[in-house]
Design a binder for these strands. Structure first.
Length: 411
RNA sequence: CGGGGUGUAGCCUAGCGGCUAAGGCACUCGCUUUGGGAGCGAGAGAUCGCAGGUUCAAAUCCUGUCACCCCGACCA
């Protein structure tokens, strides 16, 4: 894409109110725009990142047998009442009325809807397991939104629901999701730990949070550096030594990047989602649910991957693969830049080409802020040596490579 | 929801009873410039969040209201 056509514009100063690093850089790079408290627009660059992250998650969840579907945002009161959550959900639902005064809760989580789907279609053990997921807007009526994308009131979540015939099968899948999550976070450049947590109003008998250690995190956890045991501080209570290895526990703060719940039969019993087992008896389906908030994940990536100049996107989640800058506006430079741009595109690379008539300093500074992993420069200087300069965002030194060798270095 | 804070041009800020509301970024035009947010000149852009009040005079003081931010509580 030509940067001269890019809708968004970077800013020298972050808007007032932006306090966390991720919020400042997302705002300055014009990845997002605030519409209201805790409600954001993803602008073209931000949405590209969002799509990259979404696709990583999609691949990994498909790999463990997930089938993608899409459920509605408007969920009738009746559905929530089946499980009693119309009253008990906290933070409370956003409630809207239709023109006949009928009430709906905007989806904050979809156990009721999906359990209804499954009970209408599943009747035998032979039809299980099923693993269903979606990417969908979630609405959370929080008391207060904080930290840019870290805690918002509307966001897109990947929510996966598992339906198994036995506790053992369900726990095996729970473990598979855990492994898939580790892969997802790794591909996003994050090292996370799974810690024991409370299951809140979602319910169930077992729950893990995937925590990324970061100063800006609002989740407090205790962590055992010796054996990697961890627990949410509410779950851990007053414990000061590790229940596994008895070593001293450390307190850390972190960002909750994902959450797994083993629900058991909480929803299937309430909603009569049952199957006929081999022995001919009706049994409730064993369920689990698994969420990742995409916006928060994106913010988390920035919290751990940046320098004082801007974002350092890990390869794979960056808005573009390559940022090509042309310095100087001689015919030769422009012609050669265009050629490099086209050649890279032919190779299937996603290239942002800074074709604007701006000062070099401005282009460099903006490139660092936006944080695309590979930066190429075409200028009189590089052309004198028949070369292109290449610099990785996460490295200090740039180097010259010959034009004909370029593809080897970029791929 | 309790406590604190802030609303001035698209963004960041100055002005805090007194003349035509000031500066930086961004924007438009011209010339220059081209390896780390360029220089000079010209220009456009604001009912000072909104409503009411006090005053000869209100961006400035008072009351109300709305919005946003921070701390706390809450958090699927």
């Amino acid at each position: 894409m030509l940067q001269s056509k890019l809708f968004t514009k970077t800013k020298k100063q972050a808007p007032k109110g932006a306090e966390t690093i991720s919020h400042k850089f997302l705002a300055r790079g014009d990845f997002i725009d605030q519409t209201a408290a805790g409600i954001y627009t993803f602008l073209p660059l931000g949405w590209r990142v969002h799509n990259k992250v979404e696709n990583i998650i999609r691949e990994e969840i498909n790999n463990i047998g997930g089938q993608e579907l899409f459920m509605p945002t408007l969920i009738p009161k009746k559905s929530w009442q089946e499980t009693g959550r119309w009253e008990t959900i906290d933070p409370p639902l956003f409630i809207v009325k239709d023109r006949h005064d009928k009430e709906f809760g905007l989806g904050s989580t979809h156990e009721e809807v999906i359990t209804d789907l499954v009970r209408k279609r599943i009747s035998s053990y032979s039809e299980l397991p099923v693993y269903l997921y979606q990417f969908q807007n979630k609405f959370r009526n929080e008391m207060r939104a904080t930290g840019g994308l870290l805690r918002v009131r509307e966001f897109i979540m990947k929510d996966l629901y598992s339906f198994d015939v036995s506790k053992k099968a369900s726990m095996d899948f729970y473990e598979k999701v855990r492994q898939a999550y580790i892969k997802i976070f790794k591909r996003c450049g994050l090292e996370v730990v799974a810690v024991e947590a409370d299951s809140g109003t979602i319910g169930g008998d077992l729950s893990h949070e995937f925590i990324l250690f970061a100063e800006t995190g609002e989740d407090k956890i205790v962590f055992c550096p010796a054996c990697n045991y961890g627990a949410n501080i509410e779950k851990a209570g007053q414990a000061t030594e590790c229940p596994n290895c008895k070593k001293k526990l450390e307190q850390k703060s972190g960002i909750e990047a994902g959450h797994c719940f083993h629900l058991g039969t909480k929803y299937s019993q309430a909603m009569k989602a049952e199957f006929i087992d081999k022995d001919g008896k009706k049994k409730p389906i064993i369920m689990g649910c698994y969420g990742i908030g995409l916006g928060r994940l994106i913010a988390a990536i920035i919290e751990v991957s940046h320098d004082d100049r801007g974002i350092i996107w890990p390869t794979g989640v960056a808005p573009f693969d390559v940022h090509l800058l042309s310095i100087g506006n001689s015919e030769k430079v422009i012609e050669q830049s265009k050629k490099v741009y086209q050649d890279l595109q032919k190779q299937g690379m996603d290239v942002l080409y800074d074709d604007r008539d701006k000062s070099p300093g401005e282009k460099f500074t903006e490139a660092d802020l936006i944080g695309i992993p590979i930066r190429l420069v075409v200028s009189e200087k590089t052309l004198a040596k028949n070369s292109v300069e290449i610099k990785k965002r996460n490295e200090k030194e740039e180097k010259l490579v010959e034009l004909k060798e370029l593809l080897k270095y970029v791929k």
